[in-house]
Write a protein that binds this DNA or RNA. Structure first.
Lengths: 208, 208
DNA sequence: GTCGCCATACCGACCGGTCGGTGTCCAAAG
DNA sequence: CTTTGGACACCGACCGGTCGGTATGGCGAC
């Protein structure tokens, strides 16, 4: 305690000496993913993080806030990644394939966040839930834009509504957490490429 | 109360005079889907069903049992349906398309059960969870059998593992509840056919 | 009587959140 | 250099309330 007391607050130094908010978020993520939001008590979280309830409520307004912060971080990162891939100069098919594969890989890398998203989204307070949905929607729309671009250029089939295709694909992505195991024989990238192939091939015009 | 006391227990007569266990299951399903398992108290369920806690604990051993019964019913029905379609005499592609479309339609028809499945599965007691998973697994394997059959006959591509394709597809199906709204412009059957088309076309051999 | 079906009152565990207090550091005053 | 004051980061006992589950009793049918 006194040993590390000279460092600035908010700075991470070691492993369990990382900043308190970061440690809380980290352990909360693991616990929420494992036992669900409602089944995880604040007491458990702070014990896992090695702090007290007082510390937690010092940094976060509520247990809800904790969950919201977890979401927000993931959403920001995914949106950033999609934007970067989607606006590159590569051909459309490559951009879509890369975007699809990337979101699979990042979902697998952060399986816990993904699981939480799936299970605990709806027990956020209504307004925070709305904020998350809005962000999520923007992400989907950007992705859908790629599909529509291909439909307009004739590269993709037009007999399937773009939003149905996008929902179809993201359903698969969101559900990775329920079956993917790190012990399996396929790497995250291999799954990502498979998924991207399946999407792209499903989008081929029926005649081609 | 005394008015209906002459009918046999377990028999449904009218609307709110249906058998007590059935009424409990029915209202529990709605509430679980709307608020989540943990956020729904036993008190709320029995009030919605118009009975008391005593009645509920007379028929069900625990709140867990209620959830388990909901699962079991849905699983039985879906397995029955798949078995019937998969073993028909129709050509393979038609059987797979029908199975795919049907599971989408039935998932949409019972959106509540679907939602519950997605969200509350993991807060069942471990042994009941195991039982549900085992049943679910059997279902997936039957479906996968159809895909493998097509791969063996050369009708489907063989460069994608069948289990990856099946997980890909069922991810989409399980997630219908998070975006499908009855007020939308597409009927359940239309979505089902779209999904089946996407699956079948994704399975076309790359050259074809 | 007694058995199935339920009503009611109640229990103990636990949970999210609060709040008065404490230790530490730094900056300015003396 | 010492003192002082107060901002910041945290501590942990405690509270009101809720929840799943149970114990007991009643009541109509046979």
């Amino acid at each position: 305690m006194t040993r590390a007391s000279t460092r600035k607050p908010g700075e991470a130094t070691g492993d369990d000496q990382a900043a308190v908010p970061r440690r809380l978020l980290e352990h909360a993520t693991k616990l929420f993913a494992k036992k669900g939001f409602d089944r995880t008590s604040v007491q458990e979280i702070v014990e896992a993080a090695g702090v007290t309830k007082g510390a937690m409520y010092h940094y976060f307004g509520s247990k809800d806030d904790l969950l919201y912060e977890i979401y927000a971080r993931v959403l920001r990162e995914q949106t950033r990644q999609l934007e970067s891939v989607a606006s590159s100069a590569a051909p459309l098919r490559e951009r879509l394939a890369a975007a699809a594969s990337d979101v699979v890989v990042s979902s697998i890398d952060n399986l816990d966040d993904n699981t939480i998203f799936l299970q605990s989204m709806h027990q956020l307070s209504p307004d925070k839930q709305k904020a998350v949905r809005a962000e999520r929607r923007k992400y989907h729309e950007r992705f859908r834009g790629l599909v529509e671009e291909g439909q307009a250029s004739g590269e993709f089939r037009t007999d399937k509504p773009a939003d149905v295709v996008v929902d179809f694909f993201f359903g698969s992505v969101h559900h990775l957490g329920s079956w993917y195991r790190r012990s399996g024989s396929l790497t995250a990238r291999q799954i990502g490429d498979h998924y991207a192939d399946l999407l792209l091939d499903a989008l081929r015009p029926p005649s081609a």
